[in-house]
Amino acid sequence: MSARAVWKGVIGFGSERVPVKLYTAVTDRNVHFRLLDRRRHRPVHQMMIEPQSGKTVSSDDRHKAVVGKRDRILFDDEELDALTPAPSRDIEVMHFLPPGTIDHQWYQRPYFLGPDGDVETFDAFAAALAGSGREGLVHWVMRHKAYVGALRDHDGHPLLITLRHLDEVVDADALEPPGGDELSDSEVRMATDLIEMYAADFEPERYQDEYRQRLEALVETKRSGKRVKVKPRRRQQPDDDIASSLKASLARERKRA
């Protein structure tokens, strides 16, 4: 099943122009419920009311406000429109950065890129991006919103990941790691050995979203008009001396190996 592009743009750097289509790389598989009128079993609709009077307020009489501690600052639609970034097809590359420079903490939503027309340029660009190993930092405006993104190679396919804005992320660099006495070399070594004993491949396909599966089953049952019931159990235990625990863990794993 081939998917539809969500947006079209043109990557620009220097005098180069690479027309691309964006395809979302993630799918929303969550089960979504609708709010219903319990008695009528019908979807509800929403309206804004003025809480004191309880009167509904039509969209013509509504405004937007920024709410501060002591005041609200009102904005009308024209004003807000004027502040909205102007529509554009340009995906402007600001820089190309060495790999790893853009920390993962900024990553938000990935899109695969495909050619939009000029395949020759696209292929050359894909190859150059993969060959350089670099990540492009790009700016663009999509559906009235300004985005910053990382442009990178993903097994030969160019990938564009939207980045979170600065004010949304807790800056890890501003945090101080826990301190204390020097850790003993032997303990660090034992812990590292234990990690190596536990070395594994990254196999995301091993994991499943059980909750979602149960919800899907629930929805299915509802559709067929039947009834559901499920429930599992689990447990845990505490600990004290790290060195002996590590030693015991290593012994256990070695025995297993």
């Binding site: 709010l35 009128d37 008695r39 009528r40 019908r42 979807p43 509800v44 609709h45 929403q46 309206m47 804004m48 009311i49 003025e50 809480p51 004191q52 509904t56 307020v57 009489d61 509504r62 405004h63 937007k64 406000a65 920024v66 709410v67 609200r72 009102l74 904005f75 807000l80 804005h165 004010d167 949304e168």
Partner: peptide, 23 residues
Amino acid sequence: SRDVTLKEVDDQGRPLSRRFFSE
């Protein structure tokens, strides 16, 4: 959470709240 967000208000600047209605 972001430091500036826009909320719905009436022309007096009174905040509105959303309610659900049957059809």
